[in-house]
Every structure is written in structure tokens, then in C-alpha cells.
Amino acid sequence: MDETSKKTLSSIPLLKTKAGPRDKDLWPQRLKEEYQALIQYVQNNKAADNDWFRLESNKEGTRWFGKCWFIHNLLKYEFDIEFDVPVTYPATAVEIALPELDGKTAKMYRGGKICLSDHFKPLWARNVPKFGIAHAMALGLGPWLAVEIPDLIEKGIVTYKEKSTQ
């Protein structure tokens, strides 16, 4: 892992509670910790002038959705994000999906779920339950966008959509 990524990762707070979405007693506490870590990560990103995603969940914290942005050649590309929290979370990591890119790249499973590097799963497993959704974003989606989006743009598979002004 490069030094910048290490620094980014180490500045995301670690989570304490090991609980999945079916744990009625401890899931609310885990969910609070997820939000705390995400809030800190987004604040860090804004301070570093790299505000690249937003996320929110349903009330139960089982379904998450949001947007991410990637700047390439001075243009800002926006993509929808969605994922569910698996029943075996946090032992099983979340599978982040970009549904708009489904079928457009080989680096994706059906439904737009991003394929992660071979490093991700063992790294996640070693850090259960300390890693959470914020860490999955930093270790998973961030690097995936950095590799895949420029390639998809260069190939013309992803094209810039100008936001309409009202």
C-alpha cells in the first residue's frame, strides 16, 4: 500500500462493536460507530480537498445508497452507489455496487458490484470488526475508481454528462 493510502486509512476511526444487522441489541451501537467513522472520513476528505463521496442509509442501516465523484481531465463524473449490509457483516465485507456501470466493465459482478483486488479480502478479515463501511470505501471503491474510470472514459464507455442548470 502506498504511503498516501496508508495515511488515509489510518485517519479513519476504527470501530469497536462486532455486530451484524440481525443483532437486535448491538446493531444500533455498531450503526452509530459506522456513521461516526464515515463522518470523520468525509470531513478528512473535505479538508484534503478530495470530497469524493456521500452515503446514507435506510433507518435500519441495512441498505446504503449515495454518490461518488471522480475528476478526470478537469471534468467531474458522478456515479450512484448502493449496497446492502450482509447478514454475516462485519465478518463479511459489504459489496459496493455502481449500478450505472453494470455490464460496462469486466471488473464488475452482475448487478454492478465492483471486483476488488486480491489484497482486500485478507486485509478485511485481519481487521474484523475494526474496519467498517468507511474503510470499505477507502480500500475498495476509491482504488477501483482510480483504476477503472480513466480507462472507461478513454474507451468512450463512460461519457461526461453536463448537469443541467435551472
Binding site: P13, L14, L15, K16, P28, L31, K32, E33, Y35, Q36, A37, L38, I39, V42, Q43, K46, R54, L55, E56, S57
Partner: peptide, 18 residues
């Protein structure tokens, strides 16, 4: 993460308003 007095609703709202 530090112990917090904030409720889950408050944290959700904070995330929305960042």
C-alpha cells in the same frame, strides 16, 4: 471511534448535512 452522546438520528442528520 470515541464514545458519543449523539443519537443515531443525530448522526444520520450530521452525515446528510456535511
Amino acid at each position: 471511534v470515541e464514545d458519543t452522546q449523539a443519537s443515531l438520528d443525530e448522526l444520520m442528520a450530521q452525515m446528510k448535512n456535511i
